[in-house]
Design a protein around this nucleic acid. Structure first.
Lengths: 201, 201, 201, 201
DNA sequence: TATGAATGAGCCTTCATTCAT
DNA sequence: CATGAATGAAGGCTCATTCAT
């Protein structure tokens, strides 16, 4: 049962923790956090529920570990952004990198997008909110007109939506990402130019 | 117990169904669908769980009823849009009316936004998806450049995000809605103009 | 299964709460609190575990309810004692009534005696401790010699031990109770007389 | 990790078995047997659960070993008592030695006192009961009046209670022990004198 | 129109224990 | 002498749902 030809049980050993994360993320993204039971995860891995508890103290810890392991690039990105001058170039670079970071941890971000109510109650909720705020502070000019502030935020959400909602828009994932990024860049550019019409060139 | 001097129990009588919907929506929007139990709803209303079953056959039916009661305007809007020529004016009018419709059933839409994984598994999921597709068909030009298709969709998601995510942007709700709408209109206009640079007026 | 000749299921209905308490107390006293599972209680009653939760919010609440229902006489006794002058007669009357109160809720007190470590962690622990302190304040003279203070307390513990430990001493329960009570009265009398050798009669 | 400068890990080496016993007894006495998990014991010692199983075959064996290691003096005492004539002097000497034995293994006896229900189900339960019976046979005169039999037993329970319950009576432990012992001696003396009013002097 | 009582399924979690290394 | 990894059993609890009254 679950044992392959070469006597392994799907590469068993040492990597169980990783395998739990993989299966969990897949199921969380597919069915949501609450609808995914630890029994289900365990069954897919052909281990007992108790085995999960050897590797993670609680169900929540599984999602927390995924979050921590997969979103580090975004934390780094924000850190980097904070240290840069708030020029148009910085904002554009942030969007470019953010778009790429998102695409590298797609299932997790889809999960977070589609389970916002749940995430809010989890330990990662606060952290996530802080991150979004961080991004916002870099992209948005607090003195700009309201409509241009909205443009900046809209750039962010376009990136999000582009990843999860427009999946059927076009087959080529990379092409779509580029198109979405272009729109986001455009929005942030418009916002920036209105605000600095006289000071910048 | 829970009964006031004038024999009412907070407007009591006949409107229990409505009261269940109100409380349910409030809790669903606040904590999510799965985390809200019928016990909790019943307790808030000071009735028994069994009473809920007199008015609704299942928990799912409560959210279905809310969806049906509150999103009719949007179904109508789409119906109307389908019958119109796909001109820029139509698209702009759609966005204007959609923005207003959203603002009139805010808690429900917030719920749908924050519980997408859940909604997908419910009966309303399919209907909701169809609606979004309907809107999309009106707003988006299938022959346009990919980037302009994205612009059109971005207009929609900006409306959504504007309602739920940018709540702290500015105090005045109506002002924010206008700014968000302006950005959305802008996006759809740009998309349309690129696509019809030579043919349209 | 569990259904008697007359079609009832052991007088079912209306008294389930009481039946739960009865069975629970029996099992708690027999095996201890932690070793008694709700499953076991439910099985004995031929209901499901969930039924227990209809009547009691938690396992702890079952024991709390038993404590509250069965130890009221002792609370009353202490209340009464507090209002009396601290004469020898009062002390003797307290012991007499206490002995009788104990004998009327024997299983519960046996449980508390044999599960002290557990009880200490439960909500009733503090209350129980307070009661014992109450009794003590009435029986014990704070100015007496240490050895006489011990005598007073020893009277109390003799009553306790007499109920649970000396069960095989003699067949006739009531006779044993009287003998135990006599020893307790003796102890308290000696203590009192030493302390008031010159002041009292 | 957990290892100090000089290579020890809190005296490390060879004495792990002893350290397990120490920690276990501390926890058992504090929280009770069932509420103390092997995980907890292992964590306090900074070893794994599996390590415990190297030293003890089961959880029960830990408490059994403690019992055996710490109560030998009492077994010896009873053995000695059996060989003596049942005079008042013997009884008094037994009480004196018992009191001292109790005070040397206080945590264990506190544990046994507060977890009687648990102990009863363990292997040590029977042994413990036998010991108590042994003591009783020496202290109690089977032909005495019931009330004097109770007195003899009361002497024993006074010793017990004196150790665990009257802890707040007075600060000086040794003083308290002497007072408690005095009361116990008194009880056994009264019992003996009533029974031998005419035969003994 | 509602309640009181109960169920069946399932959930997350903990525990003592085992065994290969 | 001890660890890493896992298991089987069980535990307390919650939930949506049902049904007789």
């Amino acid at each position: 049962m679950g044992v392959t030809m070469d006597g392994t049980k799907q590469q068993r050993r040492g990597n169980t923790r990783q395998r739990i994360q993989d299966v969990a993320l897949e199921l969380f993204a597919e069915q949501g956090y609450e609808k995914t039971s630890l029994r289900e995860i365990a069954e897919r891995l052909d281990v007992t529920k108790a085995a999960l508890y050897y590797h993670f103290k609680t169900k929540e810890e599984i999602i927390v570990s995924l979050f921590e392991d997969l979103t580090q690039p975004i934390a780094d990105l924000i850190e980097w952004g904070r240290g840069q001058p708030h020029t148009l170039e910085t904002k554009q670079e942030i969007l470019r990198r953010y778009s790429e970071a998102l695409s590298h941890a797609e299932p997790l971000f889809r999960f977070m997008q589609e389970n916002q109510a749940t995430v809010r109650e989890l330990r990662i909720g606060e952290t996530f909110k802080d991150r979004m705020h961080g991004l916002r502070e870099i992209l948005m000019d607090p003195d700009a007109e309201l409509v241009d502030q909205v443009r900046s935020l809209s750039a962010m959400f376009t990136l999000h939506a582009g990843m999860f909602v427009m999946q059927d828009l076009v087959g080529d994932v990379e092409k779509r990402r580029q198109a979405v990024l272009e729109v986001a860049l455009d929005l942030v550019t418009q916002a920036h130019e209105h605000a600095h019409a006289d000071t910048d060139d």
